[in-house]
Amino acid sequence: MSSTQTTENVEDPVGYFIEDLLYHGKTDRTRGSYERVLRRYEAFLDDGTTPRTATHRDCMAFVHSLRGDLAESTVATYAAYLHRFYGYMTEVGVFDGNPMTLVMEEMDETIDKDPARRDISIPRMRSFVAGITHPLHRALVCTLLKTGMRVGELCNLDLRDLSVADPELETTYPLGTRPALTDRPNSLYVTPDAAVGEELNGAVRTASNKRKRETVIPVDDELHTVLKRWLAIRPDTTSPAGPLFVGTSEGWGERLDPQAVRHIVERYARDAGWYRTGGGAGENVTPHYFRHFFTTHLRDRTGDRGVVKYLRGDVADDVIDTYTHNWGDQVRETYEANVYRLL
Protein backbone atom coordinates (compact mmCIF):
# COMPACT_ATOMS: atom_id res chain seq x y z
CA MET A 1 0.00 0.00 0.00
CA SER A 2 1.35 3.39 -0.90
CA SER A 3 1.39 6.13 1.70
CA THR A 4 0.59 8.61 -1.09
CA GLN A 5 -3.04 7.51 -1.27
CA THR A 6 -5.60 10.02 -0.05
CA THR A 7 -6.98 9.56 3.42
CA GLU A 8 -10.49 9.21 2.03
CA ASN A 9 -9.80 5.80 0.46
CA VAL A 10 -7.65 4.06 3.06
CA GLU A 11 -8.91 0.46 2.95
CA ASP A 12 -6.55 -0.86 5.63
CA PRO A 13 -6.11 1.76 8.37
CA VAL A 14 -3.90 -0.54 10.45
CA GLY A 15 -1.59 -1.18 7.51
CA TYR A 16 -1.52 2.57 6.77
CA PHE A 17 -0.50 3.31 10.37
CA ILE A 18 2.17 0.58 10.47
CA GLU A 19 3.66 1.86 7.21
CA ASP A 20 3.83 5.37 8.60
CA LEU A 21 5.64 4.05 11.69
CA LEU A 22 8.33 2.81 9.32
CA TYR A 23 8.70 6.26 7.80
CA HIS A 24 8.95 7.70 11.30
CA GLY A 25 11.97 5.47 11.93
CA LYS A 26 10.38 2.89 14.25
CA THR A 27 12.12 -0.49 14.40
CA ASP A 28 10.73 -3.74 13.01
CA ARG A 29 10.18 -4.92 16.56
CA THR A 30 8.13 -1.84 17.50
CA ARG A 31 6.06 -1.99 14.35
CA GLY A 32 5.48 -5.70 14.88
CA SER A 33 4.25 -5.09 18.42
CA TYR A 34 1.80 -2.43 17.24
CA GLU A 35 0.54 -4.62 14.43
CA ARG A 36 -0.08 -7.63 16.69
CA VAL A 37 -2.16 -5.53 19.08
CA LEU A 38 -4.10 -3.68 16.38
CA ARG A 39 -4.86 -6.83 14.40
CA ARG A 40 -6.07 -8.46 17.61
CA TYR A 41 -8.34 -5.47 18.12
CA GLU A 42 -9.67 -5.77 14.56
CA ALA A 43 -10.43 -9.47 15.10
CA PHE A 44 -12.23 -8.67 18.36
CA LEU A 45 -14.69 -6.23 16.81
CA ASP A 46 -18.14 -7.53 15.90
CA ASP A 47 -18.96 -8.31 12.30
CA GLY A 48 -19.65 -5.09 10.45
CA THR A 49 -17.68 -2.96 12.91
CA THR A 50 -14.32 -1.63 11.78
CA PRO A 51 -11.70 0.49 13.56
CA ARG A 52 -13.12 3.48 11.65
CA THR A 53 -16.69 2.93 12.91
CA ALA A 54 -15.90 1.60 16.40
CA THR A 55 -17.15 3.58 19.40
CA HIS A 56 -15.67 4.13 22.85
CA ARG A 57 -17.81 1.21 24.07
CA ASP A 58 -16.16 -1.10 21.54
CA CYS A 59 -12.77 0.07 22.78
CA MET A 60 -13.78 -0.44 26.41
CA ALA A 61 -14.99 -3.96 25.64
CA PHE A 62 -11.67 -4.80 23.96
CA VAL A 63 -9.63 -3.52 26.90
CA HIS A 64 -11.86 -5.42 29.31
CA SER A 65 -11.37 -8.63 27.31
CA LEU A 66 -7.63 -8.39 28.00
CA ARG A 67 -8.02 -8.37 31.77
CA GLY A 68 -7.30 -11.66 33.46
CA ASP A 69 -5.20 -12.97 30.56
CA LEU A 70 -2.55 -10.26 30.70
CA ALA A 71 -0.72 -8.38 33.44
CA GLU A 72 -2.15 -4.96 34.31
CA SER A 73 0.85 -3.16 32.85
CA THR A 74 0.46 -5.12 29.60
CA VAL A 75 -3.23 -4.20 29.41
CA ALA A 76 -2.18 -0.56 29.83
CA THR A 77 0.42 -0.93 27.07
CA TYR A 78 -2.10 -2.43 24.65
CA ALA A 79 -4.52 0.40 25.43
CA ALA A 80 -1.76 2.96 24.83
CA TYR A 81 -1.02 1.40 21.42
CA LEU A 82 -4.69 1.64 20.47
CA HIS A 83 -4.87 5.22 21.77
CA ARG A 84 -1.86 6.26 19.71
CA PHE A 85 -3.29 4.55 16.62
CA TYR A 86 -6.57 6.44 16.89
CA GLY A 87 -4.85 9.70 17.76
CA TYR A 88 -2.56 9.51 14.75
CA MET A 89 -5.28 8.47 12.33
CA THR A 90 -7.41 11.37 13.55
CA GLU A 91 -4.54 13.82 13.09
CA VAL A 92 -3.96 12.74 9.48
CA GLY A 93 -7.66 12.89 8.68
CA VAL A 94 -8.41 9.19 8.19
CA PHE A 95 -10.69 9.02 11.26
CA ASP A 96 -13.08 11.64 12.59
CA GLY A 97 -12.19 11.20 16.27
CA ASN A 98 -10.39 9.17 18.93
CA PRO A 99 -12.76 6.88 20.87
CA MET A 100 -9.88 5.80 23.15
CA THR A 101 -9.56 9.21 24.84
CA LEU A 102 -12.35 8.56 27.33
CA VAL A 103 -11.24 4.96 27.85
CA MET A 104 -7.73 6.06 28.81
CA GLU A 105 -9.09 8.60 31.28
CA GLU A 106 -11.17 5.98 33.09
CA MET A 107 -8.66 3.09 33.13
CA ASP A 108 -7.16 1.96 36.42
CA GLU A 109 -4.22 0.11 34.82
CA THR A 110 -0.97 1.95 34.19
CA ILE A 111 2.21 1.05 32.35
CA ASP A 112 4.93 -0.12 34.73
CA LYS A 113 7.98 1.80 33.52
CA ASP A 114 10.32 0.23 36.06
CA PRO A 115 9.21 -3.40 36.54
CA ALA A 116 10.78 -5.60 39.18
CA ARG A 117 13.05 -7.97 37.28
CA ARG A 118 14.27 -11.50 37.84
CA ASP A 119 17.02 -11.59 40.47
CA ILE A 120 20.02 -13.46 39.08
CA SER A 121 23.21 -13.70 41.10
CA ILE A 122 26.66 -13.33 39.59
CA PRO A 123 27.51 -17.05 40.14
CA ARG A 124 24.30 -18.06 38.33
CA MET A 125 25.05 -15.70 35.46
CA ARG A 126 28.57 -17.13 35.32
CA SER A 127 27.08 -20.62 34.91
CA PHE A 128 24.77 -19.28 32.20
CA VAL A 129 27.71 -17.85 30.24
CA ALA A 130 29.63 -21.12 30.66
CA GLY A 131 26.85 -22.89 28.75
CA ILE A 132 27.36 -20.67 25.70
CA THR A 133 30.12 -22.16 23.58
CA HIS A 134 29.56 -20.55 20.17
CA PRO A 135 32.21 -17.78 19.88
CA LEU A 136 29.78 -15.25 18.38
CA HIS A 137 27.00 -15.94 20.87
CA ARG A 138 29.35 -15.77 23.84
CA ALA A 139 30.88 -12.54 22.54
CA LEU A 140 27.44 -10.95 22.15
CA VAL A 141 26.26 -11.93 25.63
CA CYS A 142 29.53 -11.00 27.34
CA THR A 143 29.68 -7.63 25.59
CA LEU A 144 26.17 -6.80 26.76
CA LEU A 145 26.90 -8.00 30.29
CA LYS A 146 30.28 -6.29 30.57
CA THR A 147 29.29 -2.93 29.08
CA GLY A 148 25.59 -2.38 29.79
CA MET A 149 25.05 -1.08 26.27
CA ARG A 150 21.74 -1.39 24.45
CA VAL A 151 21.24 -4.06 21.81
CA GLY A 152 21.08 -1.47 19.02
CA GLU A 153 24.37 0.02 20.20
CA LEU A 154 25.90 -3.46 20.19
CA CYS A 155 24.81 -4.03 16.58
CA ASN A 156 26.17 -0.65 15.47
CA LEU A 157 29.70 -1.38 16.68
CA ASP A 158 32.32 -1.35 13.91
CA LEU A 159 35.89 -2.62 14.03
CA ARG A 160 37.06 0.98 14.37
CA ASP A 161 35.10 1.21 17.65
CA LEU A 162 37.19 -1.51 19.35
CA SER A 163 40.68 -0.79 20.64
CA VAL A 164 42.76 -3.64 22.08
CA ALA A 165 46.39 -3.94 23.06
CA ASP A 166 46.92 -7.17 21.13
CA PRO A 167 49.55 -7.39 18.35
CA GLU A 168 47.81 -10.37 16.71
CA LEU A 169 44.55 -8.51 16.34
CA GLU A 170 46.07 -5.13 15.57
CA THR A 171 47.96 -6.53 12.57
CA THR A 172 44.90 -8.38 11.24
CA TYR A 173 42.07 -5.89 11.68
CA PRO A 174 41.73 -2.09 11.39
CA LEU A 175 40.85 -1.72 15.05
CA GLY A 176 40.52 1.37 17.20
CA THR A 177 40.87 4.03 14.51
CA ARG A 178 38.43 6.35 16.26
CA PRO A 179 40.22 9.52 17.45
CA ALA A 180 38.44 9.16 20.80
CA LEU A 181 40.29 5.86 21.35
CA THR A 182 43.74 7.37 20.94
CA ASP A 183 45.73 6.58 24.11
CA ARG A 184 42.79 4.49 25.38
CA PRO A 185 43.71 0.88 24.59
CA ASN A 186 41.35 -1.90 25.57
CA SER A 187 38.16 0.05 25.19
CA LEU A 188 34.96 0.33 23.14
CA TYR A 189 33.55 3.50 21.64
CA VAL A 190 29.76 3.96 21.51
CA THR A 191 28.65 6.70 19.15
CA PRO A 192 25.59 8.90 19.57
CA ASP A 193 25.35 9.36 15.79
CA ALA A 194 23.77 6.08 14.62
CA ALA A 195 20.14 6.37 13.48
CA VAL A 196 17.77 4.03 11.66
CA GLY A 197 17.88 4.54 7.91
CA GLU A 198 20.84 6.91 8.00
CA GLU A 199 24.31 6.23 6.66
CA LEU A 200 27.24 6.01 9.08
CA ASN A 201 30.77 4.96 8.19
CA GLY A 202 29.60 4.06 4.70
CA ALA A 203 26.68 1.83 5.73
CA VAL A 204 22.97 2.48 6.32
CA ARG A 205 21.98 1.52 9.87
CA THR A 206 19.03 -0.64 10.94
CA ALA A 207 19.16 0.43 14.60
CA SER A 208 19.60 3.68 16.50
CA ASN A 209 21.90 4.51 19.39
CA LYS A 210 19.88 6.32 22.04
CA ARG A 211 22.70 7.99 23.94
CA LYS A 212 23.20 11.69 23.30
CA ARG A 213 26.95 11.80 23.98
CA GLU A 214 29.84 9.55 23.00
CA THR A 215 30.96 7.00 25.58
CA VAL A 216 34.21 5.07 25.92
CA ILE A 217 33.81 1.84 27.88
CA PRO A 218 36.78 -0.19 29.19
CA VAL A 219 37.38 -3.70 27.87
CA ASP A 220 38.68 -5.98 30.61
CA ASP A 221 40.72 -9.15 30.10
CA GLU A 222 37.64 -11.40 29.95
CA LEU A 223 35.90 -9.38 27.27
CA HIS A 224 39.20 -9.11 25.42
CA THR A 225 39.43 -12.91 25.42
CA VAL A 226 35.92 -13.60 24.12
CA LEU A 227 36.19 -10.88 21.44
CA LYS A 228 39.51 -12.30 20.26
CA ARG A 229 38.00 -15.78 19.98
CA TRP A 230 35.12 -14.33 18.00
CA LEU A 231 37.37 -12.35 15.64
CA ALA A 232 39.35 -15.54 14.96
CA ILE A 233 36.30 -17.02 13.18
CA ARG A 234 34.51 -13.83 12.09
CA PRO A 235 33.41 -14.15 8.44
CA ASP A 236 34.61 -11.60 5.95
CA THR A 237 32.10 -8.90 5.15
CA THR A 238 31.47 -6.73 2.12
CA SER A 239 30.26 -3.84 4.28
CA PRO A 240 32.57 -0.83 4.01
CA ALA A 241 31.86 -0.09 7.67
CA GLY A 242 33.51 -3.27 8.91
CA PRO A 243 30.85 -4.31 11.46
CA LEU A 244 32.21 -6.00 14.56
CA PHE A 245 29.38 -8.54 14.82
CA VAL A 246 28.16 -10.30 11.68
CA GLY A 247 26.05 -13.36 10.92
CA THR A 248 27.49 -16.87 10.84
CA SER A 249 24.40 -18.65 9.50
CA GLU A 250 21.59 -16.69 7.86
CA GLY A 251 22.95 -13.40 6.60
CA TRP A 252 26.50 -14.76 6.47
CA GLY A 253 28.94 -11.89 6.90
CA GLU A 254 26.17 -9.29 7.22
CA ARG A 255 25.84 -6.97 10.21
CA LEU A 256 23.64 -8.48 12.92
CA ASP A 257 20.44 -6.60 13.66
CA PRO A 258 18.78 -6.31 17.09
CA GLN A 259 16.16 -8.94 16.29
CA ALA A 260 18.85 -11.52 15.51
CA VAL A 261 20.58 -10.79 18.83
CA ARG A 262 17.27 -11.07 20.70
CA HIS A 263 16.64 -14.48 19.14
CA ILE A 264 20.10 -15.69 20.17
CA VAL A 265 19.63 -14.51 23.76
CA GLU A 266 16.10 -15.95 23.90
CA ARG A 267 17.39 -19.37 22.84
CA TYR A 268 19.82 -19.61 25.74
CA ALA A 269 17.44 -17.98 28.21
CA ARG A 270 14.74 -20.55 27.36
CA ASP A 271 17.21 -23.38 27.96
CA ALA A 272 18.01 -21.86 31.36
CA GLY A 273 14.32 -21.49 32.28
CA TRP A 274 14.64 -17.71 32.15
CA TYR A 275 12.28 -17.03 29.24
CA ARG A 276 8.64 -17.89 28.62
CA THR A 277 6.42 -16.86 25.71
CA GLY A 278 4.05 -14.26 27.09
CA GLY A 279 6.30 -13.55 30.06
CA GLY A 280 6.91 -9.91 30.88
CA ALA A 281 9.99 -7.88 31.72
CA GLY A 282 9.90 -9.16 35.29
CA GLU A 283 10.28 -12.76 34.14
CA ASN A 284 12.12 -12.91 30.82
CA VAL A 285 15.85 -12.49 30.33
CA THR A 286 16.50 -10.42 27.20
CA PRO A 287 19.35 -8.23 25.95
CA HIS A 288 17.79 -5.36 27.92
CA TYR A 289 17.87 -7.51 31.06
CA PHE A 290 21.67 -7.63 30.73
CA ARG A 291 21.72 -3.81 30.88
CA HIS A 292 19.71 -4.02 34.09
CA PHE A 293 22.10 -6.69 35.46
CA PHE A 294 25.13 -4.54 34.63
CA THR A 295 23.63 -1.46 36.27
CA THR A 296 22.53 -3.23 39.44
CA HIS A 297 25.66 -5.24 40.14
CA LEU A 298 28.25 -2.67 39.13
CA ARG A 299 26.50 0.09 41.07
CA ASP A 300 26.34 -2.11 44.17
CA ARG A 301 30.02 -3.01 43.88
CA THR A 302 31.36 0.49 43.18
CA GLY A 303 28.94 2.65 45.14
CA ASP A 304 29.65 5.19 42.40
CA ARG A 305 26.45 6.06 40.55
CA GLY A 306 28.25 8.65 38.43
CA VAL A 307 30.61 6.16 36.79
CA VAL A 308 27.76 3.71 36.13
CA LYS A 309 25.64 6.46 34.59
CA TYR A 310 28.55 7.51 32.41
CA LEU A 311 29.01 3.92 31.17
CA ARG A 312 25.28 3.62 30.47
CA GLY A 313 25.38 6.86 28.52
CA ASP A 314 22.54 8.54 30.38
CA VAL A 315 24.17 11.37 32.34
CA ALA A 316 23.98 15.14 32.03
CA ASP A 317 26.56 17.03 30.00
CA ASP A 318 28.42 18.46 32.99
CA VAL A 319 28.82 15.02 34.57
CA ILE A 320 29.82 13.25 31.37
CA ASP A 321 32.42 15.95 30.69
CA THR A 322 33.99 15.29 34.08
CA TYR A 323 34.40 11.58 33.36
CA THR A 324 35.47 12.15 29.76
CA HIS A 325 38.31 14.47 30.76
CA ASN A 326 39.51 12.23 33.61
CA TRP A 327 38.61 8.91 32.00
CA GLY A 328 41.67 6.91 33.04
CA ASP A 329 41.41 7.62 36.75
CA GLN A 330 37.67 7.85 37.28
CA VAL A 331 36.29 5.40 34.74
CA ARG A 332 38.86 2.76 33.85
CA GLU A 333 40.29 2.29 37.35
CA THR A 334 36.85 2.15 38.99
CA TYR A 335 35.54 -0.22 36.33
CA GLU A 336 38.48 -2.62 36.37
CA ALA A 337 38.55 -2.75 40.16
CA ASN A 338 34.87 -3.62 40.44
CA VAL A 339 33.51 -5.30 37.30
CA TYR A 340 32.29 -8.84 37.99
CA ARG A 341 33.92 -11.95 36.56
CA LEU A 342 31.96 -14.04 34.08
CA LEU A 343 34.46 -16.72 32.95
Rank of each mutant, 00 (worst) to 15 (best):
R36P: 10
P185S: 00
D46L: 15
F290M: 11
V219I: 04
R213Y: 14
R332V: 10
R124V: 13
H288Q: 13
L227H: 06
A79T: 03
R39D: 08
R291V: 01
G93K: 01
N284S: 01
S187Y: 00
T277I: 14
T206Q: 14
R211K: 11
G328I: 06
Y310K: 01
A139N: 08
H24K: 15
V75A: 04
G93L: 00
A61W: 00
T302W: 06
S33C: 15
E106I: 08
S249L: 12
D193G: 09
K212F: 13
R332P: 08
I132W: 02
D46N: 14
V103P: 01
K212P: 10
T206P: 08
M125F: 12
A165S: 12
T49K: 13
V204C: 07
T74S: 10
L102Y: 11
L188E: 00
A207P: 08
L181D: 07
G279E: 00
M60K: 14
A130G: 03
T296A: 02
E105D: 09
A130F: 06
R332A: 11
L223S: 13
W274H: 07
V141F: 07
R31I: 10
R270K: 09
T110R: 13
Q259V: 12
R276H: 07
E266M: 15
K26H: 13
L175P: 07
E35C: 07
N186F: 02
T182P: 10
V331Q: 08
G279M: 02
A232L: 09
P174D: 13
N284V: 02
F294K: 03
L223H: 11
N326T: 03
R305W: 11
C59N: 03
A76K: 02
D193E: 12
G306I: 03
D46I: 14
L45F: 03
M125W: 08
G152C: 09
L45M: 04
T27E: 08
R31C: 15
Y88I: 06
Y78L: 07
A260G: 07
R255W: 01
G328C: 01
R234V: 05
D166H: 07
L223G: 04
D12G: 05
V307I: 06
Y310C: 00
V308P: 01
T30H: 07
L342G: 10
A165L: 09
A165F: 04
L342R: 05
T172V: 13
V265N: 09
